[in-house]
């Protein structure tokens, strides 16, 4: 049934640190790499080496220029993937029961054997988290690497989503948001983690950690010592003479 569970035992999700993300796209590649060879249909590419390449990705990294009221603009890299919403509209619209939210850990998944590829769930998602694979004709979305996180054949440090494992700056954190003492819950509380478009009523689980406040720019430029060069020795003598002529 595509009715949503009233509660879930866990709320697995990601805390994404916009302060540390450098926009390197490693999570995009790690995600595509892992999810292309395991769970469900492959993440196909269309015309990958042609003039108009296109493909299925479960994670995309945007880049924004944000201009605060005072001070210079900031570049903020912004990974976007499924937020594993508590009130996931993509689940309830599904006519076949392919789309579902797991009671045990809150992960939103697609049963590809039941997916007719109508695309309605992708329409219902405000975040663009779902992409219909053009080769398989089924809906693809972030699984939180459900085939990694419980996989006992993997070394323990690898039992987290590929995007988290692959992030070179540690900008992505995986954990249980229903546990207030979990790493992600504490991080989110400390850093003022926020949900995207809360007014859409989706109750996302994932949290974004806003960039930390920048230092106040100093009165004088940091480059001041370099700009205000006092010539000495012969150059100083020359400077004095030439100034007098």
């Amino acid at each position: 049934m595509t009715c949503l569970p009233a509660t879930t035992q866990k709320k697995l999700g990601l805390a994404i640190d916009l302060d540390t993300c450098v926009g390197c796209q490693a999570c995009v590649t790690a995600c595509k790499g892992w999810n292309d060879q395991g769970y469900g249909a492959r993440l196909s590419d269309q015309n990958p080496y042609g003039a108009d390449p296109s493909g299925t990705f479960l994670n995309r990294v945007h880049s924004y220029a944000v201009q605060p009221e005072a001070g210079p603009a900031q570049t903020i890299n912004f990974p976007r993937s499924c937020l594993h919403c508590d009130d996931a509209p993509c689940v309830t619209v599904c006519p076949t029961g392919a789309s579902y939210k797991r009671t045990e850990d809150g992960i939103v998944l697609v049963n590809e054997d039941a997916c007719i590829g109508c695309g309605l769930c992708a329409w219902a998602c405000p975040y663009g988290a779902r992409e219909l694979d053009q080769a398989a004709g089924v809906m693809k979305k972030c699984t939180l690497c459900v085939d990694r996180i419980y996989n006992e054949t993997l070394p323990e440090e690898d039992r987290e989503p590929a995007c988290v494992r692959g992030c070179p700056t540690g900008a992505r954190h995986f954990g249980d948001f229903s546990d207030p003492d979990s790493k992600v819950s504490r991080l989110s509380a400390e850093r003022g983690g926020y949900a995207l478009m809360p007014d859409m009523g989706t109750k996302p689980v994932n949290r974004y950690l806003p960039p930390r406040k920048k230092d106040h720019p100093q009165e004088a430029s940091l480059l001041a010592p370099l700009l205000d060069i006092k010539a000495s020795g012969f150059a100083g003598w020359l400077d004095k003479i030439l100034g007098k002529i």
């Binding site: 916009l18 880049s63 220029a65 944000v66 900031q74 903020i76 992409e131 949900a195 995207l196």
Partner: peptide, 22 residues
């Protein structure tokens, strides 16, 4: 959509991908 309105005025700096997608 990005939650970055808490910092300031948001504009696209660079698109997430260079070609089209679904």
């Amino acid at each position: 959509a990005t939650g970055l309105d808490r910092i300031g005025e948001v504009a696209v700096f660079e698109q997430a991908h260079t070609a089209g997608n679904y």
